[in-house]
């Protein structure tokens, strides 16, 4: 009786983290230490969990967290949602096409996912909104997000194995 709600909360971990990162002031832009260092943890969370355990996130929550991120960041509504949903789309496609993946294949497919996601982000911002974003900044962000992916892959994989083993027990 007690174990069930705890398991439920543990399973909600990735979703809570996604919402928290979208709504809180916590950011992954370290301009005070290294001006070009910034990465997008939300994209990593969405890609990893949509690939491994899509039932833990849910497309509706991804869409909604994108809307929150847009409000906090000052982007037009729907922009981050679109970006996140493109990541989900690639992850779901890869999940449908593959049986068992390793970190190298996940890393490579993640590159394709963030490339399309950030490309759509840039095209929409530069062509339809009054905002100006630097393609160099987006490239740096894409590069560092890709670089940090393996670290989060191991971290999330460990978390996944923990909640999966709990489930089996």
């Amino acid at each position: 009786m007690i174990k069930n709600p705890i398991n439920k909360i543990i399973n909600l971990g990735p979703l809570i983290l996604l919402y928290y990162l979208s709504i809180s002031e916590i950011d992954s832009h370290f301009e005070n230490y290294f001006e070009i260092l910034s990465f997008n943890i939300q994209l990593i969370i969405i890609y990893f969990w949509m690939l491994k355990r899509p039932e833990l996130l849910g497309s509706g929550h991804i869409f909604f967290s994108g809307l929150i991120n847009d409000v906090v960041m000052g982007f037009p509504l729907g922009l981050s949602s679109l970006s996140y949903l493109v990541i989900s789309l690639v992850a779901t496609y890869v999940k449908n096409m593959t049986v068992n993946t390793r970190i190298t294949t996940d890393w490579f497919t993640f590159f394709i996912a963030i490339f399309f996601s950030n490309l759509i982000f840039y095209i929409l911002v530069s062509n339809f909104s009054e905002l100006t974003v630097s393609i160099t900044e987006i490239s740096y962000n894409t590069f560092f997000t890709l670089i940090f992916f393996p670290f989060f892959w191991f971290l999330f994989n460990f978390y996944n194995s923990m909640i999966t083993s709990g489930k089996n027990a």
Partner: peptide, 12 residues
């Protein structure tokens, strides 16, 4: 959801 997000974006 992609459709809804696109509509929201263009409305905004």
């Amino acid at each position: 959801l992609i459709f809804v997000a696109s509509i929201l974006f263009f409305l905004d």
